[in-house]
Amino acid sequence: MAGAVRGTLVARRRRELWLGIVVLVVLAALPFGVGNAYLRGLIVLTLLYAGLSQAWNILGGYCGQISLGHALYFGIGAYTSTLLFTRLGISPLLGMFAGGGLAGFAAFLVGLPCFRLSGHYYAIATLVIGMMAALLAANWDFINAAQGITIPFHGESWANLAFRTAILPFHYVMLAYAALIWFVAWLIEGSRWGFFWRAVKDDVAAARSLGVSIYPSKLAAAAISGAATGIGGALYAQYIGFIDPDSTLDLSLSVLIALPAVVGGIGTLWGPLLGAAVLIPVQQLSVAWLGSAAGGIDLMVYGALIMALALARPEGLVSFFHIRASRGATGHG
């Protein structure tokens, strides 16, 4: 009997893992089919956002706590690793984990008061805290305020995670990042914590009646989500070579981190990657073609696309593929 019980759920999780490996191999081979440098850059950015949005999804999708302030954790990761490198000469390979750790701690601290709030108030509180942090950073001389920090380049180096001429290394860096966060989400889905977090998302009173502590569950999800976001921020800083509050802490970034998961399928393993694969190219191309100076037409196109997707597929893009369609169709009842 026990064997039969294990059947479907275990098989489904194994299938997801195999699919993950196949997708990883395909994405690893992708640059060899794409010669165009602009397109390659687009793919790098898409992979970064797939990882970032998966990080957001750990808190927003699995635990149901919608954060509109994830740029804060992204910025903490970017600034921590950059400052450690420029001021102390510590490699970003280590710095990104320091940044991740600090970002995770920040997410925990933000959660301490904010998870006392329920429902939409958490989203609003994170939005306000994120905007406040961006303002403070823009006036904080220790981190060069609004001028930002340029990361000095001492030649191509894996040890310093620095590449200016070749884009291929960053393809694999971002792919490794996206794959790592995907794997973390996969592990969470099958773990005690993952079950508790989803219970918290679906019904707080029922979760409590089964012995699930709500507040610590939310804090743990926030810390892991924040840490994963912070690592992405550090990688972004190395990729671009320059950070300032505008590019690492702005509210629009918080939205950009959340959107792929929401459009792709919130609380699903594949939603963030699918969402990023659609949204990031469209966003970048609409800026390139229509120009960000032209009165925000690019944003209108972008907004129209999101509305069209939301109307056509309220359960997210994953429902096209019938991957865990049952899970996608949730939480709105």
Binding site: R6, R192, A206, L210, V212, S326
Partner: peptide, 24 residues
């Protein structure tokens, strides 16, 4: 109050996890 994003098995597993550490 059911956990509507989960299957029946997953719903009941949430309860079972109170006494069990491992998912098996």
């Amino acid at each position: 109050r059911s956990f509507d994003s989960m299957t029946v098995l997953e719903n009941v597993m949430v309860g079972a996890f109170l006494r069990a550490r491992r998912s098996a």
